[in-house]
Design a binder for these strands. Structure first.
Lengths: 126, 126
DNA sequence: TAGCGATATGAAAAAATTTGCATAACGATA
DNA sequence: TATCGTTATGCAAATTTTTTCATATCGCTA
């Protein structure tokens, strides 16, 4: 799933994942979508972003579409046609969301370590 | 999934779940198993514990079996036959694991709130 | 030693999810 | 106005997960 186990002297590993949900639509916004948003920011098209992540265009498109439905606002400015066929870029809302999520994720990563240590101690001694 | 969204002034909710994995077998030990262990502690048989949670005996048995496989040690002392048909009780390892997990879960519950607040602030202002 | 109720487990069936296929539409450019 | 590569989307197929069914074993007690 989301996080690989951390190394330890124990025989049990702790894993966790975080995700978002919205008021408008039902469903979950998983961490994968943020990787996709970052790839779109880098590649300028949904297609090449999907390719770079090993996703089918169909799936990437579906993920974006579902997330937008859940959030109730657009994540991408998409245009089709033209010489290059089309392109996509992040809305300012998407950029904000992406950055807030990354900070959140980092904060979790840092605090999980201590919780895990206590857990193992309790398991072995407590 | 695991946690219901917390109330907020925002249009986005944060959810998380934690689970364990082991060295011995492959797979995941989800939070549901701890509810099952608690029910077994209360009901004395796997069957009535399963019933109390609305699980089929088959499924409950499978969850225990899988968890034991992953951890590499027994969670239940099970005996079958006899007037009452049989009964199950938690091993001391299972009790330790259960208690350590509950403490871990509580710790997470408490710390997630602050992280979520920061997240929302970043989303609205930052 | 017959019966009862729980443990034990494989395997089929059903449900849910994911993946992939096919096909249309778009529009700047040449 | 023909082309090209992307966006757009329904739908069938495949895969995975979950649920249900069937059947056996066990051993105390009457």
């Amino acid at each position: 799933m989301d996080k690989p186990p951390r190394p330890s002297r124990s025989d049990v590993f702790l894993n966790y994942k975080i995700w978002l949900s919205g008021l408008v639509g039902h469903g979950q916004i998983q961490s994968e979508i943020f990787a996709l948003l970052e790839a779109i920011r880098n590649h300028e098209t949904l297609k090449s972003a999907a390719d770079s992540l090993g996703l089918s265009y169909r799936k990437a498109w579906g993920q974006i579409s579902e997330a937008e439905q859940i959030l109730g606002y657009s994540l991408l400015v998409k245009q089709r046609g033209g010489k290059e066929g089309g392109k996509s870029s992040l809305t300012s809302s998407a950029i904000k969301l992406l950055e807030a999520y990354r900070a959140l994720q980092q904060r979790f990563d840092e605090s999980v370590e201590a919780a895990y240590t206590d857990f193992i101690n309790k398991l072995n001694n407590g």
